[in-house]
């Protein structure tokens, strides 16, 4: 049982690495931000699997905080970006 879970976790981790390529290569800022968003969600999924594999249900609180803060980062990126674009100076 835990072997299968472990296999799932390793594959999910590899998809995380895949997402990193877009963060580095992404030509525009929006690309990097959406890649970060996907990495955040994948980490939430990975934490769910780990909470079962390591029998620590408390890990879900961390997943909850990750879910919140992934949104905060994007909001911060967009909100600070706005002022710059319309800044005529």
């Amino acid at each position: 049982m835990s072997e299968v879970l472990l296999l799932l976790m390793v594959v999910l981790l590899l998809t995380l690495l895949g997402g990193l390529v877009r963060v580095v290569r992404g030509p525009s800022e929006a690309d990097r931000m959406l890649a970060a968003q996907l990495l955040g969600t994948t980490t939430v999924a990975l934490l769910m699997l780990m909470s079962v594999a390591m029998a620590m249900p408390r890990l879900l609180d961390i997943a909850l905080v990750f879910a919140i803060l992934a949104a905060i980062a994007v909001v911060c990126f967009v909100a600070t970006g706005e002022v710059r674009d319309h800044d005529a100076t």
């Binding site: 800022e29 929006a30 931000m33 959406l34 949104a71 994007v74 909001v75 967009v78 970006g81 706005e82």
Partner: peptide, 9 residues
């Protein structure tokens, strides 16, 4: 929300 905000940006 993030998808919308990123697309708008």
């Amino acid at each position: 929300t993030s998808g919308h905000l990123i697309a708008r940006h």
